[in-house]
Design a protein around this nucleic acid. Structure first.
Lengths: 189, 189
DNA sequence: ACGGAAATGTTTACTTAGTAAACATTATTA
DNA sequence: TAATAATGTTTACTAAGTAAACATTTCCGT
């Protein structure tokens, strides 16, 4: 009710997150967010320098969200289950995933912490691959790591696209239901 | 000079294509395109129903552009060279690639020919994979095909992203210079 | 407790962008 | 050649991001 709201910043982020999750980042606009928070259109600018700053904040949340799930995996779980987690995250949170891994026009150099977050997950993957193929050269391990990364993210893209187009073939259904098997069969064979 | 320009539609597409290629789809806006064509802001709407229609047109061009190059590959060229072509296309025409394969908010069902174009290339890939692993089941061939598609598109995403971030590691340099070898080593091994 | 500075919210207003509607001109065709 | 269709222009509306000036509240040092 008061002129000053406590935690307005957090509420704005929360509201934006919900919209983005349910509708996509394109649907997030200041007027709507402000209105849902019961606040004037420009109140936002007391807490963020620009809309891109809000995007960056949502991306941070996205990484946290993704990592929360990954933390629950045991080290001795297979690389496949690790990859499957990524893929499921992408399929279950398509708009958040787009926000995080789409070609954002965001200038990442302005948000170095985001780069770090994104690198962190790749480094984890490299460790996993190293354990998976212990006798290989450093270079081969890096190559394989990039390959795994590419396969996983590429698959999310395909599944999302074809799902959206209503083109889900039997094979895709199978892949989606058996992500671990799929990964064993292809990427980790 | 006259009131009616011949080929205005084509000129608009051409101009939009150039902007998109050099700058990205986000930078394409009606006022700029119209101005470059020496025409009023809304002349556009005599030729397209909406900006999305223009996007669809550019995507069609993108597919043609991509396929022109692929046609030049011989059937007996390896699957790797086929994949490498895709990847190079993505790296050399990042903004066109984004337009074609990014998560466009475009409702594809409104542009069925685009879906067909995009499916055509996948079907070609399936044929290639079939030749590559002749004794496998239909299902395994489909699975592998999706995997190849995912790897190729995923790799473009990574290379683009890390290049943009200035994070190109030695390994990535190597991959980029030796795409065929990379693909043999990972996806087609 | 008090007076001003810092923080936070509001109002107003400007800018860019997509696009609809009404109008003007040229091209086409019966 | 007159009617009609096609194509271009003008005007204007709407949505969205955001800057600037103003208002209110909080907080801190005295």
């Amino acid at each position: 009710m008061g002129y000053h709201k406590k935690n307005l910043k957090e509420r704005l982020v929360e509201i934006a997150w919900e919209i983005c999750k349910a509708e996509s980042w394109q649907k997030v606009n200041m007027r709507l967010v402000a209105q849902k928070a019961g606040v004037s259109t420009t109140a936002f600018y007391r807490h963020f320098k620009s809309k891109n700053d809000l995007k960056a904040e949502l991306m941070r949340r996205g990484f946290q969200f993704l990592y929360e799930g990954i933390k629950e995996l045991n080290i001795d779980d297979s690389l496949s289950s690790y990859g499957a987690h990524y893929i499921r995250f992408g399929l279950e949170n398509p708009h958040i995933y787009d926000l995080m891994f789409g070609n954002s026009d965001l200038d990442m150099s302005l948000y170095p912490d985001l780069e770090a977050l994104s690198n962190a997950s790749f480094n984890g993957l490299v460790e996993g691959v190293k354990a998976f193929m212990p006798n290989k050269s450093e270079k081969d391990i890096m190559i394989k790591s990039y390959n795994v990364w590419a396969s996983v993210h590429g698959l999310v893209g395909i599944l999302r696209r074809l799902e959206w187009e209503g083109n889900k073939t039997e094979t895709l259904e199978w892949i989606e239901k058996n992500l671990e098997d799929y990964l064993e069969k292809t990427t980790f064979s």
